[in-house]
């Protein structure tokens, strides 16, 4: 049944890649946040987690390999790059498109379209802020830990980056996963869609709360 080679366009692959990269990034994001939230259980918990991430159980001296984190940062960065490059085509890039969109949204009110606009806005926000975060971590992976991170967040003022980034990613990821699920047919009827939409909102709120709590939890360590 495979489609013959004559088909030149690769939009199918692109669309699927966008969904897949998005879901991977969202899963990573949520895992990442849960790992970071280990600070809520105390400094030791986080140190242990950070060590595990650096694969300290493999190294003789127990210090592990901080460059693993750098690798992860690079991997995420490239995944994000793929995701962005595909997604950006769907944004209204030309003035004509922006006018058409504005005109339509000014006369027609529709919830899911507004959600998408939020997704686009947060996407742009993430695009601006994420590289900084990745650079900070990727360039100094050994500093990740209760005191190093706390130092960075609160003393170097990086919280001013992390707070808006947290909001952006949590909104973007939850809406994105909801949309991917609908897109490929996870909702069989309108009731299950309504349910999924509710779950999406809860997920956003829960993770924002966890993230904020974690950020605050670093405060005593700074």
């Amino acid at each position: 049944m495979a489609i013959t080679k004559t088909i030149k366009n690769c939009s199918g692959w692109l669309d699927m890649s966008q969904s897949v990269s998005g879901v991977i990034l969202a899963v990573f994001l949520w895992t990442h946040l849960i790992l970071v939230s280990s600070i809520l259980l105390g400094a030791d918990a986080m140190t242990w987690i950070a060590g595990m991430m650096e694969l300290n159980f493999l190294s003789a001296d127990g210090h592990g390999y901080p460059w693993v984190v750098t690798l992860i940062a690079i991997a995420i960065a490239s995944l994000v790059l793929v995701h962005v490059l595909i997604a950006v085509q769907k944004l209204p890039l030309s003035l004509r498109q922006q006018i058409a969109l504005r005109k339509q949204m000014s006369s027609i009110s529709h919830g899911d379209t507004k959600l998408w606009v939020w997704q686009a806005i947060t996407g742009v926000g993430i695009l601006l802020m994420l590289p900084v975060h990745l650079w900070l971590i990727g360039s100094a992976p050994e500093t990740i830990g209760p005191s190093g991170s706390a130092d960075r967040i609160w003393n170097d003022g990086v919280w001013m980056l992390y707070m808006p980034l947290l909001f952006c990613v949590e909104l973007h990821a939850a809406i994105g996963v909801y949309r991917v699920a609908i897109k490929w047919g996870a909702a069989r009827d309108l009731n299950s869609r309504a349910r999924m939409k509710k779950i999406k909102t809860i997920v956003s709120v829960v993770f924002v709360v966890i993230g904020l709590a974690s950020l605050l939890a670093f405060l005593p360590h700074a």
């Binding site: 027609i108 998408w116 897109k183």
Partner: peptide, 11 residues
Amino acid sequence: FGCMTLLGCQD
């Protein structure tokens, strides 16, 4: 593959 699943149609 160009549809963004905004569902204005459905709603």
